[in-house]
Write a protein that binds this DNA or RNA. Structure first.
Length: 818
DNA sequence: TCGTAGACTATGGTA
DNA sequence: TAGTCTACGA
């Protein structure tokens, strides 16, 4: 570990701090700083370059995290910057934690005081500090998407807007999109076509939504960014404080920034005007050594790292133009390309390059590795989702027996719904696994209930939280009473909370009135435990939570319940209590609001625990930024990858291709691509076709295995693809039987058309009856016991002579009637 | 007001 | 299929 204070160390610090060092490429240096050890020339330059703006185009696995952390370390070590002058922004808390950890590993204590956090947490921090200017109370609530939807649902119901086709889902999507463009209800209304009743209604929904959030002293996720930008624009003095403070701003995953985030970066890197600097100096803000010849403070130096090929968040407003136009936006930008990959084998990279090469309108970039070809990619066409899961599970065991740790393996999928089959099989095969993301702890109903109690204490104006706990646990307060309280509050211009306190004047029944008053008193008493000097609360969070749980009976009622699920719910709440205790221990100076903030901002990728010895299951989106020795990319089918819904979106299929690319490039040594010919969905079974992207991978990179599940051992030497056609195309299940059922020749002749089934088998109107004997390609002969379903969904329940009982989709199963 | 049965709808990804 | 919502009766 290098220390900041060792005088005989680090040549870089001999450079006077005020003079930027500008080095070109692989400038030879007399003495090597340990910071540069093992870096290639481009990486070195990325660490050492000094200037107003630096754009690092970092291909997958090119060591960008290492470069970023060393760059930060180099700035600190050379004393060019104090830790407090550095703002590093990542997209997930996990990435932030990792970066902080790595800088700390290099610099030790010298790293304390930096802001390394996500866009959202940085903004919350700023907004809580400047709440007054922003017109908020510092204890504002943060609404997650579920909260947003509940709020919108009430608005839509009140406005009868569902008749115009509005749902909480589509309204929140539209509002979110607008907020990402920094539009608000008024600016939208100015450009809206007000002769369209739907538009008029939307404007009204948007207005009311904005109004309700204001009244509740709450911000949604998109507001966190947008409000910070508004704050900076409306209050130049506030902005100047942060512009002065952050001299070096570094942004990771820049390709996924949306317009609001771009604007935030823009605002933060603007120079401070001379008169403002003067004013700051006069009021005792230390600015002298920051001012330039004009008397102002020059804009912060900006470093962004990104890869447009990994942009997978266009659906939430990410705009790769932020990267492609970066040089125009920030004149004097230095661009550095990192193309050498230190993660994957060349085979994996060649596949990745081939796939992404099909996206037009991109800067060509070829990843390469010095690490050798490695194993071939393994392809597998399964009969069903379960069959696919079985393959994954079996291969995991093979790898494990060969010495690979479970934690070095991951299974990716496009949609969360795909986890079901995988989990079923993994449980059955006793493979230790964990689902990253999925139903998150903090999204569980009982946890949201418990948190709503805390939120109601922290932010008494939060009507949403109050209404959530009003009748949880059951205390006989029904929807009628809830509405009465709400309209009473509305009519008297008081808060919902106050109307609860005043409910005696509502003329409700004595039982109900008593229940409401009891809850109101409980919350008021809890609020007294907060430090009145510091409403953000240094009160002990776990004590507060325990008090609320005891007072409301939430936990004890769950414990006493006969419903077995309630036991799990009680355990979850106890887990939450344990978390508050940990929080108190780790953050003795933080209070209730800090806890709630942390809880609101945890993301799917954050609860990854690499140390646990389990296989990780996650969506392709969650996988970004991670890497594993072995990767199973499942469900590589049309309709899934690319996803059905992307078809109608401009740029949809290209974005899905990038998603596939991201998945491929997570693998270090082994990559498995699998697909199923049928997939269960909505309780139905649907026929699936291989993904178009599979054909983009050169055929000699993939070793297609036979479809298993089947009878004997896997790994038979005769892949299905071979007993089909010999022309190298249309393998899999096509091609058995009637030659007319063969797939058409490939439409597009690429030099590496993959041997991928492009069309599934179709048995047409083959009718089977109970008692029929059939022959299956893999299972052999068997007897039909039962036929269920109808039309194309008919399923034969077959007892095979040697393979046991199976269910087959008659339309496409490789069977013939005997 | 609560509990239940039946109807209905959803599963693209997320801070 | 499974989870959520609605209507109805108690």
């Amino acid at each position: 570990m290098t220390t900041l204070f060792d005088p005989d160390h680090t040549p870089a610090r001999q450079v006077p701090s005020a003079v930027p060092i500008i080095l070109d490429g692989a400038a030879p240096r007399d003495r090597e700083s340990p910071l540069l050890e093992g870096l290639n020339p481009q990486q070195r330059e990325a660490v050492l370059y000094r200037g107003p703006a630096l754009l690092i185009i970092a291909g997958a696995g090119s060591g960008k995290t290492s470069v970023l952390t060393r760059r930060i370390a180099s700035l600190l070590e050379s004393r060019e910057a104090w830790p407090s002058q550095i703002l590093a922004i990542t997209f997930t808390n996990k990435a932030a934690a990792e970066m902080r950890e790595r800088v700390r590993a290099i610099l030790g204590q010298g790293a304390d005081g930096m802001w390394i956090s996500t866009f959202h947490s940085s903004c919350v921090r700023i907004l809580r500090r400047e709440a007054e200017s922003a017109g908020l109370s510092a204890t504002f609530s943060i609404y997650d998407s579920a909260d947003t939807k509940v709020t919108l649902k009430r608005i839509i119901k009140a406005l009868d807007a569902d008749t115009l086709g509005f749902t909480p889902g589509n309204a929140s999507a539209k509002i979110s999109k607008l907020k990402n463009e920094l539009a608000d209800a008024d600016s939208y209304a100015r450009n809206a076509n007000m002769s369209d009743p739907q538009e008029v209604m939307f404007v009204e929904i948007f207005r009311q939504y904005t109004h309700r959030l204001r009244a509740a002293n709450a911000l949604d996720f998109d507001d966190l960014i947008g409000e910070t930008v508004y704050l900076f624009r409306a209050f130049p003095k506030v902005a100047a404080l942060y512009r002065r403070r952050f001299r070096h701003i570094l942004v990771d995953e820049y390709q996924d920034t949306n317009h609001a985030q771009y604007s935030l970066v823009r605002e933060l890197t603007r120079p401070v005007e001379p008169d403002l600097a003067e004013e700051m100096e006069a009021t005792g803000v230390h600015v002298r050594n920051l001012r330039d010849a004009s008397g102002g403070i020059p804009g912060a130096s900006l470093t962004v790292v990104g890869d447009s090929d990994q942009s997978i968040y266009a659906f939430r407003g990410a705009d790769t133009r932020n990267i492609s136009e970066f040089e125009r936006d920030f004149p004097g930008t230095r661009v550095i390309l990192l193309e050498q990959n230190y993660r994957s084998t060349q085979n994996i990279l060649s596949a990745a390059n081939a796939v992404i090469g099909h996206n037009f309108d991109r800067t060509d970039k070829k990843l390469w590795s010095a690490g050798g070809d490695g194993e071939k990619i393994v392809g597998y066409t399964a009969y069903s989702g379960h069959d696919e899961a079985q393959f994954v599970s079996d291969e995991i065991e093979v790898l494990h027996r060969a010495g690979m740790a479970y934690r070095d393996m991951a299974v990716f999928y496009r949609t969360n719904a795909q986890t079901r089959a995988l989990e079923e099989i993994l449980v059955r095969s006793a493979v230790p696994y964990r689902v990253v993301g999925g139903t998150k702890f903090y999204e569980r109903a009982e946890i949201k209930d418990a948190l709503a109690y805390l939120i109601a204490v922290a932010n008494p104006n939060d009507e949403l939280a109050l209404r959530r706990i009003l009748n949880t646990p059951k205390r006989g307060i029904g929807p009628a009473t809830e509405t009465a309280l709400a309209s009473f509050a509305e009519a008297n211009q008081i808060s919902f909370r106050q109307s609860m306190r005043d409910c005696a004047s509502l003329g409700l029944g004595p039982k109900v009135t008593g229940a409401i008053l009891k809850l109101a008193t409980l919350l008021d008493e809890a609020a007294l435990k907060l430090d009145p000097e510091n409403p953000a609360g240094t009160a002990n969070v776990s004590e507060l939570l325990t008090f609320l749980l005891d007072g409301s009976g939430l936990l004890s009622l769950l414990r006493g319940s006969r419903d077995p699920q309630d036991e799990a719910r009680a355990e979850n709440i106890e887990e939450l209590v344990a978390q508050t205790k940990d929080f108190n221990k780790e953050n003795p100076d933080s209070g209730l609001v800090d806890f709630l903030t942390q809880v609101s901002l945890v993301a799917a990728a954050d609860d990854l625990d690499d140390a646990s010895g389990t296989v990780s299951l996650m969506t392709l989106h969650t996988a970004k930024g991670l890497e594993y020795e072995a990767v199973f990319l499942t469900g590589v089918e049309e309709g899934l990858l690319p996803h059905q819904m992307s078809a109608n979106e401009p740029g949809g299929p290209a974005e899905e291709r990038r998603l596939f690319y991201v998945g491929i490039t997570r693998a270090r040594q082994r990559l498995y691509l699998s697909l199923a010919m049928t997939r269960a969905q909505f309780g139905d079974i649907n026929v699936a076709m291989p993904s178009r992207y599979l054909q983009e991978i050169p055929v000699d990179l993939i070793d297609w295995k036979q479809s298993p599940g089947m009878a004997n051992s896997r790994g038979g030497t005769q892949p299905r693809a071979l007993n089909a056609r010999r022309d190298g195309f249309g393998g899999g299940f096509a091609g058995r039987g009637d030659p007319q059922a063969l797939p058409p020749a490939p439409k597009k002749k690429t030099e590496w058309a993959s041997r991928v089934p492009s069309q599934v088998r179709d048995n047409g109107d083959l009718t089977l009856m109970q008692g029929d004997r059939i022959r299956h390609v893999d299972f052999g002969d068997g007897r039909v016991n039962q036929v269920t379903g109808d039309g194309t969904k008919r399923i034969a329940h077959v007892q095979f002579d040697t393979a046991g009982a199976k269910k087959l989709l008659i339309k496409i199963a490789p069977i013939e009637k005997l």
